[in-house]
Simulated scan of single mutants.
Amino acid sequence: MNPAELLERQSFVELSARARVEGLLDEATMRELIGPFERLTSPWLAKQDIVTQADDGVVIARGTLDGTNVVVAAIEPAFQGGSMGEVGGAKIAGALELAAEDAAAGNPVVPILLLETGGVRLQEANCGLAAIAEIHAAIVELRDWVPVLGVSTGPVGCFGGMSIAAGLCSQLLVTREARLGLNGPQVIEQEAGVAEFDSRDRPMIWQLLGGAQRTAIGLADELVDDDLADIRSRLARAVQKTPAPLARTAHVEDFQALLAAIDPAERADANAVQTAFRQHIGDDHE
């Protein structure tokens, strides 16, 4: 790609959550639900002298994408690292549950999750975990009716319980800059030691957890550029797809065999992980 084409791109990563939603939806169709003017803030952060945000870091909006009815839930990475608390998690879960009701009534609405999150908010641990569990349940229910689409682009990545939500999505789009994992690098280093995982080794982190690697082993479905127009175009195609069984959540025995074959005493690298997935999972899961 020549420099002129690069300059014409609009970075998706650099946009706020609300701007990402506006960029994806058809012009003049965005209707925000439980927006900042509702002043629905976290009841827990203020008690710990932490500044709250009026939308609790989650933007929910209805609209259309190339004419298809969608509901978009976007997590704001600039607020508390995109962490999920009681209010923000309930907003996402509620939107998905309403989408399921619409689908059951014959009015399908395709959900799109913009996932930039470190997982549960530590200040609201149990409340946040309960909300994330509700999100998981709603995604699984919705997948029988419509495709559930996820996007993770960086810079925060997608970790913790929300990485499970990403894995449950019918189709997950990631950029090379994205990272996906149940535990983040600093958590792994804290629990297992720097010899196991050095959180300062950025090349190693992206080789194991980055978007290209996650796509190569089938834990993400499509590698996209950090370009609003490209992501919108790919989502516009994805919302038209017919729901289908998701191999990475249905073929549990294959993943159990993969785990059994891994020697935890050996330090993993990108090539070894790809080889293990090819041997035990296969191309039909990608």
Rank of each mutant, 00 (worst) to 15 (best):
G67S: 08
G85M: 10
V70T: 09
A90E: 15
A74C: 09
M84R: 03
G85I: 03
G85C: 04
M84H: 02
G89M: 04
A78F: 00
V70R: 07
G67F: 00
E86M: 13
Q80W: 01
E76T: 05
V70I: 07
V70P: 02
E86A: 13
A78V: 08
V87C: 09
G67W: 00
E76C: 02
D66N: 13
A74K: 01
A78S: 15
G85E: 08
G81C: 03
P77N: 12
E101N: 12
A100C: 03
L96H: 04
N69S: 15
G85P: 00
G82E: 05
V70F: 02
V72H: 03
E97A: 14
G89N: 04
G81S: 12
I92P: 01
N69T: 14
A93E: 06
L96N: 10
K91W: 09
E101I: 13
G81H: 09
A95S: 12
A95N: 07
K91I: 02
Q80A: 08
E101D: 13
L98M: 13
G67D: 07
V71Q: 10
L96E: 04
D66C: 06
E97L: 12
Q80M: 13
L98W: 07
A74F: 01
G82C: 11
P77L: 09
G67M: 03
G85Y: 00
P77K: 10
G81R: 10
E76S: 12
A73E: 13
E97G: 02
E76L: 08
V87G: 06
M84A: 06
E86H: 13
M84S: 07
F79E: 09
P77I: 04
P77F: 07
I92A: 02
A99S: 12
E76M: 08
G88W: 01
A90T: 14
N69A: 15
S83F: 05
A93Q: 12
V70S: 07
A99Q: 12
A99N: 05
G94A: 07
D66I: 01
A73S: 14
E101Q: 11
D66A: 15
T68L: 01
I92N: 05
A100P: 05
G88S: 15
A73H: 01
G67C: 04
P77Y: 01
P77D: 13
V70H: 01
A93S: 15
V87W: 03
V87F: 06
A90I: 11
F79M: 12
V87A: 03
G81D: 10
M84Y: 02
A93G: 10
G88D: 08
E97V: 12
E76D: 15
I92W: 02
V71F: 04
A100M: 00
G89H: 06
Q80K: 12
V87Q: 08
V70K: 05
T68Y: 02
A90S: 15
I92R: 03
I75A: 08
M84Q: 14
K91D: 03
M84V: 15
A90N: 15
G89V: 07
A95D: 09
F79P: 06
E76W: 03
I75M: 11
K91P: 01
V87L: 11
I75L: 13
E76G: 03
G81V: 05
V71H: 06
S83C: 11
G67K: 02
